[in-house]
Amino acid sequence: MAQIRIKNVAKRFGAYQALHSINLDVADQEFMVLLGASGCGKTTLLRIIAGLETPSEGEVWIGDRRVDHLAPRDRGIAMVFQNYAVFPHLTVFENIAFGLRMAKMDNALVTKRVERTAELMHIEQLLKRYSGELSGGQRQRVAVARALAMEPDVILMDEPLSNLDALLRLEMRAELKGVLAESKTTAIYVTHDQVEAMSLADRISVMHQGRIVQAASPIEVYRNPAARFVASFIGNPPMNFLPATSHGNGQWSVAGQTFNGPATQKPLEFAIRPEDLSPADQGLKATARVVEPLGAHLLVTCDVEGASFRAVLDSDLTVRPGDILTLAPQPDRIRWFDPETTQAVA
C-alpha cells in the first residue's frame, strides 16, 4: 500500500515562494498528474516527494511512514527524469540493474528482473548497448525500465515524454499508461501538456503559482473548472469568457442575450467551451474574424461585443471572415465565475 499524503508543504528559495502550503492525497495505485505551466511549482513538488529537495515546511507521507527527513533511497520510490539520466558509462543492462545492484540483490535475480522489464519495454535487444548508441525514444524506454525494475511503491515522472517528437510521444503515452496500470504502482507524473494529462491521469492536480488550484478527475477538470485559471488553461482552445450582469432571480444578461444562472447579485463572468457552441436561430451574435479549417472541425475566432470569442464548428459549414453568426451555447455546459475571487460559482 503506498498512498501519498502531502500536508501543508511549502518551499521557499530565498525570498521566492515556490510552493504555498500544498495539501494533496494520492491514493494507492492512483495515477496522479501534476499539470501546470512552467514555473508553477510542479517539478519542485515532485522533487520534494522524491527527496531531491527539502520542503521549507510541511510533511510528506508515503504509506504510513513520514519520509520528508529521509534520503531518496529510503523512500521506496523510483523516478524517470526529464532528460532520462541514463548513465552513459553503463550498458542498458547495467542501467536497468543499477537500483537492484545498489539494493544488493542476488545476481541471478537481477538478470531475471532486468530481462523481464526489458521485455516489457521492448528493449530486450538493446541490453548490451550504451546510451550513446540509442535514440531518444529508446533512451526513454531504458529510463522507464530502470524505474519499473525496482518494483517501487511509487514511481515519479518528471515530464518524461517532453523530449520526444510528437508521434513517438503519442505511442509512448499509450504504452506508459498500459505498463503502469499493470504494475499497480502509485504514479505521480509532471507535465505541462494538458492532452498528456487528460489521457493518462486518474486525477489531475492543476497547479498555478505554487498552489494546487484543482485536483479532480480529467473530465471533472475539463467540464467543471474550479477556477477561472483552470478554465483558461485546460482545453484547446480554452473556454470563452463574457461579462454578465444580473437581472435578479438567477436571470443574467450576456451580450444582449438572457441566460439562467446562479442566484447572486454580484457581477459574474459567463463561460462556455468553444465546442459547446452551435449555430442556431437564437443566441450570441458573433462576427467571424479568422476561420481555420482543422479537418475534423472548423475553428472560428469571432468578436462578441468587442471580446474575442472562439467556436469549434462542424467542418461542413461554410464560414467566411466578416460573416455574422448566431451561436447558441449548450445550456448545461454554461459555467459562471466570480471575477473578484476567480472561483467558479454554481
Binding site: 531518496p72 520510490i77 527524469f81 532528460n83 539520466a85 543499477f98 539494493a103
Partner: peptide, 10 residues
Amino acid sequence: EYYEAAEVFG
C-alpha cells in the same frame, strides 16, 4: 542529473 538518478536508485 546522474547524481540525482543514482541517489534515487539507492
